[in-house]
Structure formats: structure tokens, C-alpha cells
Write a protein that binds this DNA or RNA. Sequence first.
DNA 1: CGCCCTATGTCAAAATGCTGACATGGAAGA
DNA 2: TCTTCCATGTCAGCATTTTGACATAGGGCG
Lengths: 153, 153
Amino acid sequence: MEDRIPVPPPHPAHDVTEHVGYRLKRASAALRGAMDKALREHGLTVPQYSCLELLDAQPGLSNADLARGTFVTRQSANVVLRGLKEAGLITRPASADHGRVLPVHLTPAGQERLHAARTAVYALEKRMVEAVPERRLTALLTDLDAMTEALGG
Amino acid sequence: MEDRIPVPPPHPAHDVTEHVGYRLKRASAALRGAMDKALREHGLTVPQYSCLELLDAQPGLSNADLARGTFVTRQSANVVLRGLKEAGLITRPASADHGRVLPVHLTPAGQERLHAARTAVYALEKRMVEAVPERRLTALLTDLDAMTEALGG
DNA sequence: CGCCCTATGTCAAAATGCTGACATGGAAGA
DNA sequence: TCTTCCATGTCAGCATTTTGACATAGGGCG
């Protein structure tokens, strides 16, 4: 008699694979995998590419900025930056002249590498975008953002 | 008149943060973070919880099945299963009686733990779902799946 | 000026995940 | 039947990421 349950109100589906979260994770995993494969041919990892893109759009970002922008911890971003610096794709002052922030910039080699990799990544983006009806694209972005905010950033 | 545009072929947007991929990753990261926090109070990690959910819906899944279902490699899934077994939440035969597959099952303790954690996770799902207009929910799921398939699984 | 509070960069350790490789069991096809 | 091919489970090594902690720089405010 313990199955006197009135109703599972907030539980629309009974199979996890029907949940929004599951679909979201699956799509994200597919993107990650595809990017990983595409970027490997350019000698870049996904976090590395992400950093280059952010730096191209906003030169001088700090390590902490990049961490937030790539959704990882400061420590992880730091490791990525070391790799990029060792590869000669970015520059980073050894010491800060003003505050404590060490502004990061792309080198010409970094620009070049980014542009090459970007072509491959944008092709993936194109495949994704074309998979959804054009009139729904805006709504999709809106809803993704809404979900993000509902979860607290 | 402007829809006469041949098309801005591969580069629709100029800021990465406008791209679908970025929004997708951000939403996924937000979900991951929220789940991580919620599950910690129940002594579970996200991969562990994912396995429990899959096993609850489909008892007897193999390690490889769970790996595919949680979007990680067989090796990673194996580590997760060891943790779950050590915690007494699942059972797994030491040797296969039929093929090579070792079917995994939830223990009563596993069921219990899952049910407790599920409440917390479903609350998150609810927040997400309610953030998007109800009439668009189905479309959202459809589009997420379409993007997944466009990227090759 | 001096105090608190936040943010940043970094170190160390542990956890987590992946690549590469191998042996084995089953299934499909010659 | 036998042989080839694929999937599974697992080991080892490496890469990545996170947690936790710490010192320091700056802004806000008494």
C-alpha cells in the first residue's frame, strides 16, 4: 500500500534518456567529440582553441577571464595557457606592471593557427545550425540561455 | 531583399559567444555544475548518478553499455563501476556465465541512494524545463537531437 | 590611514578521463 | 566447420581537471 502515490507531478518522463538534461549532455558530448577530432588535425585541443577564440575577440584577457569563458577552473586554464605559450601561440608577461593580472595576447603564429582551425570548427557549427529549422534558431539560443540562467549561470 | 544574400558561407557570427556551440557548452556546463553540487550532498558524482539511473531503467546493462550511455570510454565507466561496487550500490558477477559481458544490477542500497538523489536532480530538471515556454519544449528536444545526429552521434 | 573583503595567480595532491594495447568470447560468412 | 571480424573487459601510462590552500594586489569604507 505504499504505492498510494498521488502522482509524480514534476516527473514528466520515466526514462532518463527522455529528460532535457540527458539530451543536452548528449548534444554537448557530440559537439565535444566532433571538435576534438577536427582540432586534432590542427594540433589543438578544445580548451586551447576556446582560449584562442576568446583572445582573438578580446585581446588582453586574464587567466581568470579565460577560465570563466571556457567553463573551467583558473588552475585548468593556467595549464592550457602554459601549453599555448610553449607552442608560441600566445604571449604573457612574466610580471604584472599594474595589478596582479597578467594580460594574455595572441602572437602572429597564434592568429594563424586559430584561423586555420576556425575553418574546421565553423564547418561543424554549420552542420549543427543547418540541422535545426531556421525559424527556430533564435528560440533555441534563447531557451538554452534561459536554462543556463535558471541553473544559476 | 536581404534574404537574397548568397549566404555568409561559413562564418555566420563574429563573436564566439554568439555561436550555438558556445551556448550549448555553457548550458551543459551549468547543468553539470548544478548537478555536481546537488549530488555531493548525496555522496554521488555525476557519472555515478548517471549509471544508477541507467541501471534502474535497464537492469543488467554491461559496462560498455553504461559507457555509451554516459558518454565516456569503457575504461572510465569501469572505474565508476568499481566505486559503485565498493560502495555497495551495485552488484557485478566476477565472471560471466554466458558470454564475456558482466551484467550490472542495482542493490537495494543502490535503489535507495538513487531515489534520494533523484529528488534533487529532478528539481534541477524542473527549473530548467520551466525556464523555456512549454509550447517550445518538444521543439527544443527535437532540435537538440537533430544537432546531435548532424555531428555524428 | 588602516581594515576588510574580494579577486587573482599559483603550488601541491588527488580525482577523473582518455589513448593505446591486449586477450578473449561470439557472431557472421566462406 | 573454420576463419575472420567485431565487441567486450581490462591493464598500463599519460593528460586533463578539480579540490584545497596560500600569498598578494586593489577597492571600498570606517
